[in-house]
Design a protein around this nucleic acid. Structure first.
Length: 573
DNA sequence: GCCGTTTTCGGCCCGACTGTTTTCAGTCG
């Protein structure tokens, strides 16, 4: 039973209880525990075995027993079975449909025996639902539309795909001159690799006009709601965008509030309560008897200052220790994009890239880098058209020529060598040692057993000529699960062999994840942030790698490509 | 169901929008 599975069951339990209209705070307790476990690094099985579950926040006697039961019975227990008999799991999926909450779902289930999307669609084709109390024509129509959009877009969106669209919308709104301040908040401001929607916050002297403009932008496909201070639309790409209008005096508080995360906000508000303060999206208020006196809210730092905190960067506002670190004045000094001195994972026409060595080096120079590493594939995979042992010598000569030709940037001769199924590398040590920089990576047989995959990677990084393990888990967001790897073992081996781990910036990979990066940092492992660019404009994806690193609490000193050229070479094993 | 510098009871974040309700419930963030 992994943590995610237990978290899922706790979430399902909460959903069932909600449909049953159980005590809302009991529901909330299950929900909170679910969220907490989802992001927990320690193995929940181990904690259960050692009787340490109750040391986790939000987990008391009841939940600890429930979790223990689930683990002992491999994902179920009498209580959960009983609940599932009352409300089937297939019904819970329907909660993901916009506008369909527990109350309405209960009616659909009890009166119409709806238990699946298929049955719901069938019901919507009849007129039966109209006869139900509180279900007018509009409600039914909205549900039909929500079902349709649920069917076409049921995943989260990738940051790298959506960020340009978000900026485009901000530009359009700014252009109107109706907006004085504007900020995209939510998970996008926190730099999450996947985002659910856009949360756009503005101040304006003509809110109604801005909302009107917002709902009629060319990117909008549907207006979900439209009020005096906020509106929600669905964009043509299927992603939702929220616009909220606030007063200038509340802008900072609102930016903080809508940036989240929810868990961070709740923690902060609890701190405020202890100080007899109240924090909401309108500001910070001091309680004086029955009345509230506003003491801040125009700037975001007002909110933090009220509870004696320094400003905390959005990327780490996940309630994972940042508040405690802030109180102790021990916040990390997070890495910045301008700290990056090189991109050291680039492909060219020598394998599956689209540009020449020279063109890629010039793209690096344009970004102000001191050096780049060309790292074409050496792989048995035909599709990559990479470096065979026979081509290595001419590839190295080509890099040398390019290096002499280009001014103002140094080019390292690198390679991204395949880790074969048996843990050996595609090129011999004799060839590997000719390179300045060797990245090793898995590109085939991604679905091995955990033990075998861990052994495979450990063997690869044990090779003295391998400097970097590239995209260690091979995940593709929304597309491919990460390979099964015992990271504890892999990280120990990386530490022992001084192997650098890559944070791949390509927005579909983002690999290592921020969580994993933070863990690696805690073990003293060095990392490198690279783009894996296959075209010259891909080098700009570095910002997504840096934002991911920031989410992993990484500082400049944790990342080797912040080092100047000479020191970088020395940092390689 | 959890929690406690107001600890074994009584809180637990809260405001905006929609639809069909004529004063509010449901949903969302």
């Amino acid at each position: 039973m992994d943590n995610k599975k237990i978290a899922q069951i706790l979430g399902q339990t909460a959903d069932i209880l909600e449909i049953k209209e159980a005590n809302p705070w009991r529901i909330n307790a299950y929900r909170q525990a679910s969220h907490y476990l989802e992001n927990l690094e320690q193995d929940i099985n181990l904690m259960a075995k050692e009787n340490k579950l109750k040391t986790l926040p939000g987990i008391g006697t009841g939940l600890a027993n429930y979790i223990k039961d689930l683990i002992a019975n491999n994902g179920t227990c009498p209580e959960f079975e009983k609940l599932k008999k009352q409300v089937p799991l297939s019904l819970l999926k329907l909660l993901e449909i916009e506008g369909l909450g527990p109350k309405k779902l209960k009616i659909l289930f009890k009166k119409f025996e709806i238990t699946s999307l298929y049955k719901l669609e069938k019901l919507l084709k009849t007129k039966k639902l109209y006869q139900e109390e509180n279900w007018g024509e509009k409600s039914v129509q909205n549900l039909i539309e929500a079902v349709n959009s649920y069917k076409s877009f049921r995943h989260r969106f990738l940051l790298g795909e959506m960020e340009p669209l978000g900026r485009e919308i901000v530009q359009e709104l700014k252009k109107s001159k109706l907006v004085s301040q504007i900020e995209i908040c939510g998970s996008m401001r926190r730099g999450k690799s996947t985002i659910g929607d856009f949360d756009i916050l503005i101040t304006s002297s003509q809110p109604l006009k801005v909302i009107k403009l917002f709902t009629t932008l060319k990117q909008v496909s549907k207006v979900v709601n439209q009020g005096k201070t906020k509106s929600q639309v669905v964009l043509k790409q299927g992603i939702k965008a929220d616009l909220r209008v606030v007063k200038k005096s509340s802008f900072g508080a609102a930016v903080h509030y809508f940036t989240g995360s929810k868990a961070h906000n709740i923690s902060l508000r609890k701190l405020a309560q202890k100080k007899n303060l109240r924090i909401n999206e309108y500001g910070v208020f001091k309680k004086k008897g029955q009345t509230l006196k506003k003491i801040g809210g125009e700037r975001e730092k007002d909110v933090f200052k009220a509870v004696d905190l320094p400003w905390i960067p959005p990327e780490i506002r996940e309630n994972k220790g940042e508040i405690m670190a802030g109180l102790k004045n021990q916040l990390p000094c997070l890495i910045k994009l301008k700290d990056i001195k090189a991109d050291a994972h680039l492909h060219t026409k020598w394998s599956d890239g689209e540009k020449t060595i020279l063109e890629m080096a010039q793209a690096g120079k344009k970004l102000g880098y001191e050096y780049v590493a060309i790292t074409d594939h050496a792989s048995p995979l035909g599709m990559v058209q990479g470096l065979t042992p026979q081509r290595v010598a001419s590839y190295l000569r080509a890099i040398k020529r390019a290096n002499q030709k280009v001014k103002g940037i140094k080019i390292l001769a690198g390679v991204e060598v395949d880790i074969m199924k048996n843990g050996r590398l595609y090129l011999s040590d004799y060839l590997l040692k000719k390179f300045d920089l060797v990245l090793a990576a898995v590109h085939s047989s991604l679905k091995m057993e955990k033990k075998a995959m861990t052994k495979r990677l450990c063997q690869a990084i044990n090779n003295p000529w391998v400097h970097v393990l590239a995209h260690p888990t091979n995940r593709l967001l929304n597309k491919r699960e990460p390979s099964k790897i015992d990271l504890r073992v892999l990280f120990q081996q990386a530490k022992k062999t001084k192997t650098i781990l890559e944070l791949n910036s390509f927005w579909r990979r983002v690999d290592l994840s921020s969580q994993q990066a933070r863990w690696a940092k805690e073990q003293g492992i060095k990392m490198i942030i690279s783009t894996d660019a296959h075209n010259s404009n891909n080098l700009e994806l570095m910002k997504y790698g840096v934002i991911n690193a920031r989410r992993g609490w990484l500082e400049k000193k944790d990342v080797v490509n912040t080092l100047p050229y000479d020191k970088f070479l020395k940092a390689l094993k």
